[in-house]
Every structure is written in structure tokens, then in C-alpha cells.
Simulated assay, not measured.
Amino acid sequence: MPPRLDDDTRAAIIADIRAGTKSRNAIARDHGVAPSMVTKLARESGNAEAFDRKPTAQAVKAAAVDAKALRARLIADLYNDAQRFRERSWAEYTQIVTGPTGVELVTTKLPPLRDQQAGYTALAICLDKALKLESINTGDGAEQGKTMIGDLRAALGLAYDAIEAQESQAAQDTDRHSTPTE
């Protein structure tokens, strides 16, 4: 059985719990006790909710709003990055060239084609990711999925009806053309 906590340590742990500025594990580390002891003292002192990890509806909504705001900022940054890659792909290009007279800087009107291609590949990646994040932020992804599934269901229904009609017509044609055997 572990030794009983002295009153000063107990009081310090409870003060940290009530302050609400540290995690359970940080409090345990600071006072040299097990995290379960911190949880037990939180319950005993009437602060059981201090380390409750069950999210409330409000906290979930707040986290969703925060995530949407972060995605919006990232979308803007990705569009800015794409613009910078495009500008860089068409800007003057200075490179170090070693020639018969030694090292010199040579500036060309445009970057080499491989550098332009790399710039446009990076640009395309930025745009693709920005568009995907936009569909998440606007909810279009889920709506598009619902629409696509609904359209597929309707098309399958039409195809089923057409097959049924063909089979029915074929059965009628077979009945008309068959001769009774005597």
C-alpha cells in the first residue's frame, strides 16, 4: 500500500486541479504522484469534471468552427503559393555557369523548361489541395456524394425497368410465335 500523501502535497495538488491550467499528467509529474492519484483527489475534492474528456456539444461545434477557420486560412495560403509558383515559372532566371573564363552569373528571360515544369507541378498540387479543402469547408463534398448516389440509383432503376420491359416483350413474342403441339 502506498504511503498516505502529506497534507501539504494534497493541498498543492488540489490547488493545481482547481486552477485548471495543467493536465492531469503534468500535475502528477510536478508532485511525484501517479495520474490516478490526481484523478482520485479531483473526485474527492468535488472537481471530478476537471479531467473529464467527454466533449460537450458546444465544444464539438467550437472545434468544428476552429477547424473550418484553419482550413480557410490554409486555402488562402495555398492559392497564394500557387500564384507565387506561377510568377516564378515566368520570371527571369539567374544561374551560375562555369565557362572557359571561370564562374559567371547568367540571367535568362525564363527559367529552364524543367524548372518551369516543376513550378507548374507545384502550382497544380497547391490548386488541387485548395479545391479539396474548399469542398470540405463548403460541404459540397457530401452534397455531391448524395447527388451522385441519387443519380446512380435513378439510373439503375431506369435500367432495371428497361430490362424488365425487354424480357416481358421477349416473352410475349415467344408466346405469339410458338405453335401448340398436337
Rank of each mutant, 00 (worst) to 15 (best):
S89E: 10
G145L: 09
I27W: 00
A118G: 13
T56H: 04
P2G: 11
N80E: 05
T21C: 08
P35T: 04
G99K: 07
E134Q: 13
T147W: 13
V60M: 10
G32Q: 06
V97K: 10
L74F: 06
F51K: 01
K109Q: 15
E167A: 15
A91R: 08
A15C: 03
Y120V: 06
A26P: 02
Q83R: 10
G119W: 00
T94R: 07
S45W: 01
K132C: 03
D115G: 02
A50H: 02
R4S: 11
A165K: 15
V33F: 01
D81K: 01
L123H: 14
D8S: 11
I125Y: 13
A48V: 11
M148T: 10
D173A: 09
R73Y: 14
A154W: 04
Y93S: 10
S135D: 05
D30N: 12
L70S: 11
G46N: 07
T101Q: 10
S135K: 14
A171M: 03
D151C: 10
D128W: 02
A50I: 03
I96A: 11
I17F: 01
N47D: 13
K129R: 15
P2M: 10
N137C: 13
V60G: 07
V103F: 05
A130I: 01
A162C: 09
R88F: 05
R10E: 05
L158D: 14
G99S: 13
E92F: 06
T108V: 08
Q83N: 10
T147G: 12
E164V: 07
A76H: 01
R84A: 12
A11H: 09
Y93M: 06
V38F: 00
K68G: 06
V38L: 03
A42L: 09
D6W: 09
Q117K: 05
P3K: 13
I149T: 14
A122I: 00
H177N: 14
D52P: 04
R43H: 13
I75H: 01
R71P: 03
L78N: 08
L105F: 13
R18I: 11
V60R: 12
N137F: 01
V60Y: 04
E167W: 11
F51P: 02
Y79G: 02
E87I: 03
T56Q: 06
L127G: 02
Q172H: 06
Y160C: 09
T107P: 05
V103N: 08
T94H: 06
R18Q: 15
A142N: 10
G32I: 09
Y160R: 15
Q58D: 13
Q166M: 14
H177K: 12
R114Q: 13
P3M: 07
I125S: 13
T21K: 11
A63Q: 11
A162H: 04
T181P: 00
G32Y: 08
